[in-house]
Simulated scan of single mutants.
Amino acid sequence: MSDSKKVECKDPAGHWLHICQLRKEGRDEDVAALMKDPGHICLNCNAVAKEAKNLCNPSPFSKA
């Protein structure tokens, strides 16, 4: 039995807007635009985005 636990998407209804889904669809230009000037990181996949709504498990971070 594995000790690791899969973290689910915190907004399944909005998953179509998340960077991981856009990457799967090959929408690289959209992904690049969402990643400009990031302020949030996904705790599932470590993707960064300007807005939390574009990540499955977002956490804000401070820019140094």
Rank of each mutant, 00 (worst) to 15 (best):
A49G: 05
A13S: 15
A13I: 07
V7N: 03
N54V: 11
K6I: 14
K10A: 11
A52K: 01
P58N: 00
V31L: 01
N57T: 07
L17I: 01
K50S: 11
I41H: 00
I41L: 04
W16S: 05
N57G: 01
Q21G: 02
C56A: 02
S59E: 07
E8Q: 06
S59A: 12
P12L: 09
N54D: 14
M35D: 07
H18Q: 10
G14L: 10
W16C: 06
V31W: 03
R23G: 01
L17F: 10
K6W: 10
A47D: 05
D30M: 05
I41W: 02
S2C: 12
V48D: 04
R27V: 06
F61Q: 02
N44Q: 04
K36F: 03
N46G: 08
P12H: 13
G39M: 10
H15Y: 13
V7S: 04
I19E: 02
L43A: 07
C56W: 00
A32G: 02
P38H: 09
K63Q: 11
H40Q: 10
A49W: 03
D11S: 15
S4P: 01
A64G: 12
L17Y: 07
P60R: 02
R27S: 00
S59V: 06
C42D: 02
S2P: 12
I41K: 00
F61Y: 03
N57V: 04
N57P: 00
C45D: 11
A13G: 13
K50P: 02
S4L: 11
G26E: 03
K5I: 07
K50N: 15
C20V: 03
F61L: 04
W16Y: 13
C45H: 12
K5H: 12
E25R: 13
K24V: 11
K53S: 09
H40Y: 15
K24N: 07
D11I: 13
N57M: 05
D3R: 08
C20W: 14
L43E: 09
A52N: 01
E51Q: 09
R27Y: 10
H15E: 14
L43C: 04
P58Y: 09
C56Q: 01
F61T: 03
G39Y: 12
I19K: 09
W16H: 13
N46P: 01
H40T: 06
A49I: 08
G26I: 00
L55I: 08
M1T: 12
P60F: 00
A64N: 07
C56T: 04
H15F: 15
P60G: 01
K36S: 11
C9G: 12
N46V: 13
D11K: 14
K6D: 10
E25Q: 11
P12F: 08
G14C: 04
Q21P: 06
S62M: 13
K63S: 15
P38E: 11
L55W: 09
R27A: 09
E29C: 00
K36D: 08
D11R: 06
S62H: 08
P58G: 05
Q21S: 15
A49S: 14
W16V: 09
N57E: 01
V48T: 10
Q21M: 13
H15W: 11
K63V: 15
D28T: 15
D11C: 15
L17M: 14
S2M: 08
C9D: 12
P58V: 10
S62A: 01
G39N: 13
E51I: 15
D30K: 08
C45V: 06
Q21R: 14
W16A: 07
C20M: 05
P60N: 09
P38R: 06
A13C: 11
V48C: 11
N54Y: 12
E29I: 10
C56K: 06
